[in-house]
Every structure is written in C-alpha cells, then in structure tokens.
Amino acid sequence: MIFPGATVRVTNVDDTYYRFEGLVQRVSDGKAAVLFENGNWDKLVTFRLSELEAVK
C-alpha cells in the first residue's frame, strides 16, 4: 500500500522517470503525486498507482 510520505520507485519502463525514486505527496483516484528532488530542482509528477512500487 502506498501512502503520503512513502518513498516510491517508478516501475513503468516506458516512462521518462523509470527507476527514479521520490516522495509521495498525495494519493487519490488511483493516482499518486510524487515529488522528485535533485540538487537545485524539484518536480511533482502524477503516476497511476500501478506504475509505482514502495521502496523498502
């Protein structure tokens, strides 16, 4: 189960963010908004829950 605050990895091989890890900001309607941070940039991207896996 994916909840806000969880760290997730993108599993969709066709996505630009494949294998990126980010922090879930919100979850609704089968989608999750994931925040990616890297140095001087932040990006908030929405994914279907089926495209994400929780990082242990």
Results as ranks from 00 to 15, higher is better:
45 V>N: 03
32 A>Y: 05
3 F>G: 08
50 S>A: 09
43 K>Q: 11
52 L>T: 00
16 T>W: 09
48 R>I: 10
2 I>H: 02
47 F>R: 07
28 S>H: 13
29 D>R: 08
44 L>A: 06
26 R>P: 01
43 K>V: 14
39 G>M: 10
2 I>T: 02
14 D>C: 13
50 S>G: 07
13 V>R: 12
39 G>E: 09
38 N>L: 14
45 V>L: 08
21 E>G: 02
17 Y>H: 08
25 Q>I: 15
3 F>H: 10
40 N>Y: 10
9 R>M: 08
25 Q>S: 06
29 D>A: 09
4 P>M: 06
30 G>L: 05
26 R>Q: 12
42 D>T: 15
37 E>Y: 11
30 G>N: 07
38 N>G: 11
43 K>I: 15
1 M>Q: 12
15 D>C: 13
46 T>H: 10
18 Y>C: 03
39 G>A: 10
28 S>F: 15
16 T>V: 14
14 D>I: 08
19 R>L: 14
3 F>T: 10
30 G>I: 03
24 V>C: 05
9 R>H: 04
12 N>V: 07
22 G>D: 01
6 A>L: 09
2 I>C: 05
29 D>Q: 09
55 V>D: 02
50 S>R: 05
54 A>W: 12
54 A>L: 15
48 R>Q: 14
39 G>L: 09
16 T>S: 11
2 I>M: 04
12 N>P: 04
49 L>Y: 06
11 T>I: 14
48 R>P: 15
45 V>Y: 05
28 S>I: 11
51 E>R: 02
37 E>Q: 14
3 F>L: 09
1 M>P: 12
18 Y>I: 02
12 N>T: 07
20 F>W: 15
23 L>Q: 09
20 F>A: 09
15 D>T: 11
56 K>T: 14
29 D>W: 06
35 L>D: 03
8 V>P: 00
4 P>K: 08
31 K>H: 13
20 F>N: 06
22 G>Y: 02
56 K>Q: 13
6 A>H: 06
15 D>A: 11
9 R>E: 02
28 S>L: 10
9 R>P: 00
49 L>S: 04
10 V>K: 00
27 V>C: 06
9 R>K: 07
35 L>Q: 07
14 D>E: 12
21 E>I: 15
8 V>M: 01
45 V>E: 07
23 L>C: 11
22 G>M: 02
31 K>C: 13
35 L>M: 08
26 R>T: 14
29 D>N: 11
53 E>L: 06
43 K>F: 13
3 F>R: 11
52 L>I: 08
5 G>K: 03
35 L>A: 06
22 G>N: 00
5 G>N: 03
22 G>E: 01
33 A>T: 15
51 E>H: 07
1 M>W: 10
43 K>E: 12
31 K>N: 09
3 F>Q: 10
12 N>K: 13
6 A>C: 13
43 K>R: 11
11 T>P: 02
8 V>Q: 00
17 Y>P: 01
4 P>C: 08
25 Q>R: 08
50 S>Y: 08
32 A>C: 07
12 N>F: 04
1 M>D: 14
30 G>R: 04
20 F>L: 11
50 S>H: 09
21 E>F: 08
2 I>G: 01
43 K>H: 10
24 V>G: 00
38 N>E: 11
16 T>Y: 14
28 S>C: 14
6 A>G: 06
42 D>L: 15
17 Y>G: 02
23 L>E: 08
49 L>W: 05
1 M>I: 09
13 V>S: 10
35 L>F: 09
50 S>D: 14
5 G>T: 02
27 V>I: 10
34 V>T: 01
14 D>S: 11
32 A>S: 02
30 G>A: 04
45 V>C: 09
34 V>D: 00
47 F>D: 03
16 T>K: 14
17 Y>S: 03
47 F>I: 09
44 L>Y: 06
48 R>Y: 15
24 V>A: 03
1 M>S: 11
10 V>D: 01
43 K>N: 10
33 A>G: 05
35 L>H: 07
34 V>Q: 01
15 D>L: 08
35 L>S: 06
4 P>H: 04
39 G>P: 07
9 R>N: 02
45 V>H: 06
27 V>H: 01
33 A>V: 15
51 E>I: 05
39 G>D: 10
51 E>L: 04
38 N>M: 14
34 V>R: 00
45 V>Q: 05
16 T>C: 13
15 D>G: 05
2 I>A: 02
9 R>F: 05
41 W>Q: 11
55 V>R: 04
43 K>W: 12
7 T>E: 05
32 A>Q: 01
38 N>S: 11
37 E>P: 10
37 E>H: 14
22 G>Q: 01
5 G>F: 04
7 T>I: 13
26 R>Y: 14
54 A>T: 09
35 L>C: 10
13 V>M: 09
42 D>S: 15
5 G>V: 01
22 G>H: 01
25 Q>Y: 09
50 S>F: 08
26 R>E: 13
23 L>R: 11
12 N>S: 08
40 N>G: 12
16 T>G: 08
40 N>C: 14
54 A>G: 07
22 G>R: 00
14 D>Q: 10
15 D>F: 04
31 K>T: 11
40 N>T: 12
8 V>T: 01
46 T>I: 14
39 G>V: 08
37 E>R: 14
49 L>V: 10
42 D>I: 15
45 V>P: 09
54 A>V: 15
56 K>D: 13
23 L>D: 03
40 N>V: 11
26 R>G: 09
52 L>P: 00
53 E>F: 05
53 E>M: 08
46 T>Y: 14
52 L>Y: 01
40 N>I: 11
49 L>C: 09
18 Y>T: 02
13 V>A: 11
49 L>R: 01
1 M>H: 12
53 E>C: 08
47 F>Q: 03
45 V>D: 03
22 G>K: 00
40 N>E: 12
6 A>F: 07
34 V>N: 01
56 K>E: 13
56 K>R: 10
36 F>M: 06
3 F>K: 10
48 R>C: 14
20 F>R: 13
54 A>M: 13
29 D>M: 08
16 T>M: 14
